Simulated scan of single mutants.
Amino acid sequence: MTTAEQVRRSVEGLTIPALLRRNAQDFPDHPALTSGIGPNTTTLTWSQLRTEVSALTRGLTALRLRRGDRMLIAISKRPEHWVCDLAAIHIGALPCTTYDTLSTEQSTSSPSTATLRCWPWRAPGPRPTASAPPTSTRSPPIPRCARRWTRR
Score class of each variant (00 low, 15 high):
Met1Tyr: 00
Met1His: 02
Thr2Leu: 12
Thr2Ile: 09
Thr3Glu: 10
Ala4Lys: 02
Gln6Lys: 13
Val7Thr: 14
Arg8Lys: 15
Gly13Pro: 05
Ala18Arg: 08
Ala18Gln: 11
Leu20Thr: 09
Arg22Asp: 15
Arg22Pro: 04
Asn23Phe: 08
Ala24Asn: 03
Phe27Glu: 11
Phe27Asp: 12
Pro28Lys: 12
Pro31Arg: 13
Thr34Arg: 11
Gly36Pro: 11
Ile37Cys: 04
Thr41Ser: 07
Thr41Gly: 03
Trp46Leu: 10
Trp46Thr: 13
Ser47Tyr: 04
Leu49Gln: 14
Arg50Asn: 13
Arg50Ile: 04
Arg50Trp: 05
Glu52Ser: 04
Val53Gln: 07
Ser54Gln: 07
Leu63Asn: 00
Arg67Val: 06
Gly68Leu: 06
Ser76Cys: 07
Lys77Val: 11
Arg78Ser: 10
Arg78Met: 13
Pro79Ala: 14
Glu80Arg: 00
Val83Cys: 01
Cys84Arg: 02
Cys84Phe: 00
Ala88Lys: 01
His90Gly: 05
Gly92Ser: 01
Ala93Val: 13
Ala93His: 09
Thr97Asn: 15
Thr101Gln: 09
Leu102Gln: 06
Thr104Pro: 02
Thr104Leu: 06
Thr108Gly: 01
Ser110Leu: 15
Pro111Cys: 14
Thr115Gln: 13
Ala123Tyr: 05
Pro124Ala: 15
Pro128Cys: 08
Ala132Arg: 06
Pro133Asn: 05
Pro133His: 10
Thr135Lys: 08
Thr135Arg: 13
Ser139Ala: 14
Ser139Glu: 12
Ile142Phe: 01
Arg144Gln: 09
Cys145Phe: 00
Ala146Met: 10
Arg147Asn: 05
Trp149Glu: 06
